[in-house]
Amino acid sequence: MKVLGAVVLPVVIVLIIGAGLLRGVKIFDCFLEGAKEGLITVKNILPSIVGLVVAVGMLKASGGLDIIVKFLSPLSGITGIPEEIMPLAVLNPISGGGALSMYELILKDYGADSYLGRVASVMMGATETTFYAITVYYGSVGIKKTRHTTLAALIADFTSFVASAWTVRLFFGS
């Protein structure tokens, strides 16, 4: 696992740069163009990140987060998702910024290479903000009746949450 993890990024980057050179693409100009777009994305997400980091920080500092964790802990027993990760699972489909700041909090509290840190990492990597995707895609073409989209998407999310805990135990032990 460690070898794969170390190799993947350099290999992908070299392959892409190599392909660009072979195809005669102006790779550095392209790089600058893409990097600029990355910067614009950052600018666009910044306001919502500020709002949600504040809200998540307040939840944590007030002890409200502990109450939510306790409240959700029976669910954690059934699903095998650790109770400390449950708030992340709840926020994940609703708010990308909220999930991101909750994720940072988990890494800060428990460390990146702990069981909890790994489960949270897999969860973050394996899902997208479901309600955002539904709103944007249907909103763009004026669909009002989305039928069973939300149900299917939430079942997909739920599966990925349970799977995150399970795959981490499978690959790393707990």
Binding site: I16, R23, V25, C30, A35, G38, T41
Partner: peptide, 10 residues
């Protein structure tokens, strides 16, 4: 973003 723009263009 930069690396993937190269991937896209190639």
């Amino acid at each position: 973003g930069g690396i993937m723009k190269i991937a896209e263009k190639s």
